[in-house]
C-alpha cells in the first residue's frame, strides 16, 4: 500500500464513536489516520507529528477548533500544513472565519458518509 507511507493525516475529534468510524474507513482505503481526542493537546501533536493534512473538529472541549487553526497558521513550522474543518457544528460566520484563517474547506460530517470523506481527502492530497 503505497499511500500508507505517502500521507500522514491527523484527525482532531473528541467523540470516540466518530473517530473510531473514520479510522476504520481510512484504514479500509489504506490510509493511516491518527486521532487526537483533546483540543488542548492537538497543537502539540501536530507540531510533533507534522501531518500532511489535519481534519479539525470545531467543538473539541475547552478550546475551539478555530483556536487550534489560528495557532497552526501562526507558527512558521506548521503554517503550511493543510487544514480542513470537519464538524457537525456549522455557522455561516464561523465557516467564513475559518476559511479566512487558512482552512482549505469546511465539511459538515453528516452531509457525507466516511467513504466520501476519504475520497475528498485523497483529492486534496493528490
Amino acid at each position: 500500500m503505497s499511500e500508507k507511507t505517502k500521507y500522514k493525516i491527523l484527525m482532531v475529534e473528541d467523540d470516540e464513536a466518530q473517530s473510531l468510524m473514520y479510522q476504520i474507513e481510512f484504514k479500509n482505503f489504506g490510509i493511516d489516520l491518527a486521532i487526537v481526542n483533546d483540543g488542548e493537546v492537538a497543537y502539540d501533536e501536530i507540531v510533533r507529528q507534522k501531518p500532511d493534512l489535519v481534519l479539525l473538529d470545531m467543538l473539541i472541549g475547552k478550546v475551539s477548533g478555530l483556536d487550534v487553526l489560528n495557532k497552526i497558521k501562526a507558527d512558521a513550522a506548521t503554517k503550511n500544513i493543510k487544514v480542513v474543518i470537519i464538524s457537525n457544528y456549522n455557522k455561516k460566520e464561523l465557516n467564513a472565519e475559518c476559511k479566512k484563517a487558512g482552512a482549505i474547506d469546511y465539511w459538515v460530517k453528516s452531509d457525507y458518509v466516511p467513504k466520501q470523506i476519504v475520497e475528498k481527502v485523497q483529492a486534496i492530497l493528490k
Binding site: D15, Q18, Y22, E25, N88, S110, V113, P114
Partner: peptide
Amino acid sequence: RTPVSVIKGT
C-alpha cells in the same frame, strides 16, 4: 447531526 453522521456512516 452528530448521532446521524455516526449512524449513517456505520
